[in-house]
Amino acid sequence: MTAPAMELSNVNKTIGSKKIIKDLSFTINKGEVFGFIGPNGAGKTTTIRMMVGLMKITNGDVRILGKSIKTDYKDAVREVGAIVENPELYPFMSGWQNLKHFARMMPGITNERIMDVVKLLGMEKPIKEKVGRYSLGMRQRLGIAQALLHNPSVLILDEPTNGLDPAGIREIRKYIRKLAEEENVAVIISSHLLSEIELMCDRIGIIKNGELITTEYVHDTEDENLKQFSLEATPATEALHIIQNDFGFDVTTQDDMLTFKCAKEQMPPLTKALIEHNIQLYQVNMKNDSLEDKFFDLIGENTIE
């Protein structure tokens, strides 16, 4: 088995006495687009900074293609292209001069390669202009161009669609998908824009208060037919009893609301059974389980501790 594109194992970060990141472990495979989401202050950017060696890892390790960022920094970081936070480039230099500047810091990047990347991102026209005059969207693209120059195996983008108009977002999305599918690049995207992540990513990792809550596939194939239902019924305990024992669903209760997953076809017999047992049914809802719901289910309220 080849090494995963990026592997975090028990990554911890302590600043002073405060634990910012707690035992973060997950892997990202080649050709995968991984969405890294969480509320503000959850530790997304800190994690990304540790992935690229901008911050020291207090405990644990990050491996890129099997190479540790701690002990094998140069070889590990060679495989990474990144934008950390905003795409900050030299405002007094042109786009081309900025790209040349970063190209000089890495081996074997020809002018042709730079031009290819520029074309790829559709920036031929403004490339000779000073970056200070760029719109946020153009800077975002130039930032991505800068990250792609050396053909990295792992591309890390912090809020890549920030400041782009809808057409730009679609273009970037298509481009990221293409990179992952055709060039087998592992792409890590952090974002608060959940709908955006949903369209772009294969898998998401949700982080809250420095802890990884879950990683899951955006398009859960095995659960495709299962929908989430919630129903309000009294007495709730009796209803719970019936649904659990007679139908075998996994039910969570909150007051008189019962929530569980089942196939659509199973609902009529279930309601019928409940009515036959003299249970009062007030409402039955089927949820379209979007990522946003998943997110809020997992995160609860958006709290910063």
């Binding site: 690229v52 060696g53 901008l54 920094y73 140069k74 070889d75 970081v77 060679r78 990474v80 990144a82 950390v84 936070e85 905003n86 900050e88 480039l89 030299y90 405002p91 970063f102 810091m105 890495m106 081996p107 800068q146």
Partner: peptide, 14 residues
């Protein structure tokens, strides 16, 4: 101040 230090330090250069 410019924030470009982040782009400088994520290169394969010590």
């Amino acid at each position: 101040r410019w924030g470009t230090i982040k782009l400088l330090l994520i290169r394969p250069i010590s």
